[in-house]
């Protein structure tokens, strides 16, 4: 156990042992930064929780006056009548019909655009096309609403002469156009994230570009594409101005898109315009309607989340 005296550099012996200790000023700075970041994150979480709380709280007041059974089974929504009836079904139906029309436009067109931009378009075309698509998403929805009312509806009336001035078809179609860029851009990102090695594998087997795009890239990106569709559905369900302007504001329990109808969002706009006194049952009804909308979007989001996990591809 003989110890050997190793020569030590002189500088080491006189080094300040405190140099390695925690620095108070550095610690406090880190804490403050961490606090600011935490507060920033808290704002969004707190807002969400606040909204949910208000929705439930005000809805509770509403449901003290209107039984839940009536709310879900009545097919009339007439809060302004002297004998008001509060059946959510007509509004829900309006939302679902306009959304369905919109998605019939947005999902196929958005998917085709995504496939084209990701797999076929030369670099220059892609770079030129993307700003235009983003512009489509940036147009204020009120502009779309009047576009539907004063341009698309008259056009449709030439094809279907009996079409009323307010109808869900026109609103739905224009809403579909509005949603296209949301779907195409998320779906395109998902497809471009598919590794080149998969495409090369497909080409090496003698596949054409179209076969590669449809049989390899699209299935590989399916979870991202599903996420794009879910985003589109959420946009459609929550869209307000287009339907408020172009679909009419009469609650109408129908699945015929050629008829006018009100949606949940359009009804909330109507009440917000001041037709009902603050604090009345009618006023509280918008919170119940809002809660319905919230639950609907929540269901779609959970569905999307579940689909993403189920079909997630590991490449």
């Amino acid at each position: 156990m003989a110890t050997v005296d190793l020569p030590r550099p002189a500088a080491m012996a006189i080094a300040d042992p405190d140099r390695l200790k925690h620095k108070f000023s550095r610690n406090i700075k880190e804490r403050i930064i961490e606090m600011i970041l935490f507060l920033a994150a808290l704002v969004s979480v707190a807002t969400t929780l606040g909204i949910v709380f208000i929705l439930f709280y005000e809805s509770l007041a509403f449901f003290r006056h209107v039984p839940l059974v009536d709310f879900f089974t009545d097919t009339m929504w007439t809060p302004l009548f002297s004998e008001p009836r509060y059946g959510i079904a007509p509004l829900l139906m309006g939302t679902l019909v306009t959304s369905a029309v919109a998605l019939c436009v947005a999902i196929p067109v958005g998917t085709v655009i995504a496939i084209y931009l990701s797999e076929f378009a030369p670099f220059s075309v892609r770079e030129a096309a993307k700003p235009f698509l983003e512009l489509l998403g940036g147009v204020p929805t009120i502009v779309y609403g009047y576009f539907a009312l004063v341009f698309v509806t008259p056009l449709l009336q030439k094809v279907f002469p009996g079409l009323p001035g307010f109808n869900m078809l026109s609103a739905g179609l224009v809403m579909g156009v509005m949603i296209i860029p949301y779907i195409s851009s998320v779906a395109e990102d998902a497809m471009r994230a598919v590794p080149m090695s998969l495409r090369e594998g497909s080409y090496a087997m003698g596949a054409t570009r179209f076969q590669t795009a449809t049989r390899v890239v699209t299935p590989a990106a399916i979870s991202g594409i599903a996420a794009a569709y879910i985003l589109g559905i959420s946009r459609a369900v929550g869209e307000t101005m287009i339907v408020a302007v172009a679909a009419g504001m009469q609650p109408n329990f129908t699945i015929n898109p050629a008829e006018p109808a009100s949606t949940i969002t359009a009804y909330i706009v109507q009440v917000a315009l001041g037709d009902l006194p603050h604090g009345s049952v009618g006023y509280q009804s918008i919170f119940a309607a809002g809660l319905m909308l919230f639950l609907l979007t929540l269901v779609f989001n959970i569905l999307g989340h579940w689909m993403r996990r189920k079909y997630r591809e590991a490449y």
């Binding site: 090695s197 090369e200 596949a207 591809e313």
Partner: peptide
């Protein structure tokens, strides 16, 4: 046409996001 006659195996295994069966059948499918 060239790739139909000259096949390739890559550095990193790159199976398609399909079943085992459909991976092998891919060349016939296309």
């Amino acid at each position: 046409e060239v790739r139909m006659r000259i096949s390739m195996v890559f550095q990193k295994p790159n199976p398609f996001p399909k079943t085992i069966y459909e991976n092998v059948a891919y060349g016939m499918r296309v």
